[in-house]
């Protein structure tokens, strides 16, 4: 059953990775504006050509 120690260690490591990813996301300003990106991704580049 001592494998549990290893498993928990790994699971904590994974969780820490996610925590670090979250910190990075906050730091890079992704939570500053949660409206504009949603609009921005809907813009198409060359609308003129398909009409």
């Amino acid at each position: 059953m001592s494998i549990i120690f290893l498993l928990i260690g790994i699971s904590l490591l994974v969780a820490l990775t996610f925590l670090a990813a979250f910190f990075w996301a906050v730091r890079s300003g992704q939570y500053e504006d949660d409206y504009t990106p949603a609009v921005r991704m809907l813009f198409e580049d060359e609308i003129e050509q398909d009409e």
Binding site: V26, R27, G29, Y31
Partner: peptide, 11 residues
């Protein structure tokens, strides 16, 4: 910048 402390704390 909006205060980020709260987000860190939440995380």
């Amino acid at each position: 910048h909006g205060t980020r402390t709260l987000l860190y704390q939440l995380g």
